[in-house]
């Protein structure tokens, strides 16, 4: 791939982490939905038989959780609240209506992405904790039945919330052209970076590029 005019936005390790998580999450979410909406029972077929799906679901869920912990440490730095996030929220109508009139001082991730990050962290952690409580035959026996009931309700609530958020996340990837390629290859164009993450571009990409070109000329 010719990466001359491109910027590396997401490193190989992070991409691997993300896409492995996507694969596992897909299987876990489909099997989970097959039990939550019994009319969608056929979705458990992604893991073979319903019995096999029931057995594998918690293990794959654990893989998702472990990958999440890795991603937390890799990405938390970029997802801390910033003063410019307020600007983004104030201009959310422009953002959603595709009006690129003024730069909003968006860092590596915008305020919406940051909220998504924290919600995903919270929901997957809740899913892991409640999932352990309900996990048969290994752990459920150690918890009283009322705790299991509460865990099952919280697990489906969190699962539902997470799947809806992820649908939103996927839609944003489709809507903002160049994002999915960016996450697959790691590279985005300079124009993309400038338009969608202007502060990130101004503070990290442009100076670095100037440095290198200056170094080359001297």
């Amino acid at each position: 791939m010719d990466t001359k005019n491109l910027i590396l936005r997401t490193k190989f390790v992070d991409r691997m982490c993300h896409w492995t998580m996507v694969a596992c999450f897909f299987l876990v979410a489909m099997s989970g939905l097959s039990w939550f909406f019994p009319s969608l029972n056929w979705l458990s077929g992604v893991l073979g038989t319903p019995q096999l799906a029931r057995m594998l679901h918690p293990f794959l869920g654990t893989v998702v959780f472990v990958l999440l912990v890795c991603m937390f440490f890799r990405f938390v730095h970029y997802n801390m609240p910033a003063r410019t996030d307020v600007t983004w929220f104030r201009n959310i109508a422009d953002v959603l209506m595709n009006r690129h009139t003024k730069p909003l001082g968006i860092g590596k991730y915008n305020a919406g992405q940051k909220i998504l990050f924290w919600c995903i962290m919270a929901l997957i952690s809740a899913l892991f904790a409640t999932g352990v409580v309900a996990w048969r035959p290994y752990f459920a026996g150690y918890f009283p039945i009322p705790a299991i009931r509460l865990a099952l309700l919280a697990h489906s609530l969190a699962g539902l919330g997470l799947i809806l958020l992820v649908i939103g996340h996927i839609y944003m990837g489709i809507w903002v052209r160049g994002s999915i390629t960016g996450m697959l290859t790691g590279y985005v164009s300079r124009a993309w970076a400038k338009q969608h993450h202007d502060r990130w571009y101004a503070e990290e990409i442009a100076p670095a590029a100037k440095d290198t070109s200056a170094k080359r000329q001297s």
């Binding site: 001359k4 809507w175 164009s189 300079r190 442009a206």
Partner: peptide, 18 residues
């Protein structure tokens, strides 16, 4: 949501290697 103008600064500040 597409990019408005292609590559604003790429030409002058083109890096030698990604």
């Amino acid at each position: 949501n597409t990019v408005d103008s292609p590559d604003p600064e790429a030409a002058p500040a083109k890096p030698p290697e990604g």
